[in-house]
């Protein structure tokens, strides 16, 4: 019995990482209807930049690198959207997706050149091994618990931004009707770039948390993209709380599957994803209106 509870707990913790992966993907899809194929690679890129920042600044904790990494990634997202992706939006919905595919290849090759194919890890120090004992001989790691908190807080912040701020209102309006939003005085190119920048902030956070938890290399991105993608689809396209739920469900599916046999971990995650896709094609919590 305890074994099952432990699996579910571990699943929730793992799922928090997946929700962190998926938050930015979900935001960008919700606002721009764009699937960023390079999303996973940007997370890996963030982890590598954190590694490099730690080396040159001597920051003891990788979390400190976020002070520089967050504004940097915001800028990367903003400029990328404004200069490369916005002009590609138009009649052909495939074009921006193909561009992100190209970016994915470029990032992977760039990282291979810059950091070799070796697998890397960010070192979280004592935090990595600290844990809280629960009754029944169970334990939860402090880092996974922190990840869960940050993941939920980030989704909550995004939700607040979208539904309670002027920026969010304009983002939703632009998403619903681009040309009419322009008539209201919304500079839609700037707004899409803001959304991309904010998504990259979540990517920076995801990069650091993931890099501490697991090892990564230059080509880890596509695997991480799959998890992010599955979390978004399970939760329902365009719904941020759904994305959090989707991440947790995916995590629990994987860890409970792994109880039967370690080899089943990934497979059972994919199976649950497929089952949900078949049973509710719009995901568990599709966006309210539309």
């Amino acid at each position: 019995m305890n074994g099952w509870i432990d699996s579910i707990l571990q699943g929730v913790m793992l799922g928090a990482i997946y929700a962190l992966f998926a938050a930015g993907l979900s935001l960008v899809f919700g606002v721009m209807r764009l699937v960023n194929v390079a999303h996973g690679d940007f997370i890996v890129l963030s982890a590598f930049i954190a590694l490099w920042l730690q080396r040159i600044t001597g920051f003891s904790s990788p979390f400190l690198t976020l002070i520089l990494l967050v504004p940097l990634m915001f800028l990367v997202g903003y400029v990328l959207q404004r200069v490369i992706l916005n002009p590609a939006f138009g009649a052909d919905i495939l074009r921006p997706v193909l561009i992100t595919f190209g970016l994915s290849v470029i990032i992977q090759n760039g990282l291979l050149q810059g950091f070799s194919a070796d697998s890397q890890k960010l070192h979280g120090g004592k935090l990595e091994v600290a844990s809280i004992a629960l009754p029944g001989g169970l334990a939860i790691g402090v880092l996974p618990l922190l990840t869960l908190g940050v993941s939920a807080a980030m989704i909550g912040l995004l939700q607040w931004m979208l539904y309670r701020t002027k920026l969010g209102r304009a983002l939703r309006a632009t998403s619903a009707d681009l040309s009419t939003a322009g008539l209201m005085g919304v500079n839609t190119s700037h707004l899409f770039a803001m959304a991309a920048g904010i998504a990259m902030v979540t990517v920076a956070v995801a990069g650091v948390f993931t890099g501490i938890r697991a090892s990564f290399d230059a080509v880890s991105g596509p695997d991480w993209l799959i998890f992010a993608f599955e979390a978004v689809i399970i939760g329902g396209l365009g719904s941020l709380w759904g994305t959090l739920a989707g991440g947790l469900i995916l995590g629990m599916a994987q860890t409970t599957g792994a109880r039967f046999s370690p080899g089943w971990q990934l497979l059972s995650g994919h199976l649950v994803f497929l089952a949900i896709l078949i049973l509710c094609p719009r995901g568990l919590f599709p966006r309210r209106t539309e």
Partner: peptide, 17 residues
């Protein structure tokens, strides 16, 4: 704007000035 409330639609009109 289909996904916005009545009030949010009105407020969008005041976005610029």
């Amino acid at each position: 704007f289909s996904s916005l409330t009545v009030e949010e639609n009105l407020l969008m009109g005041a976005y610029a000035n």
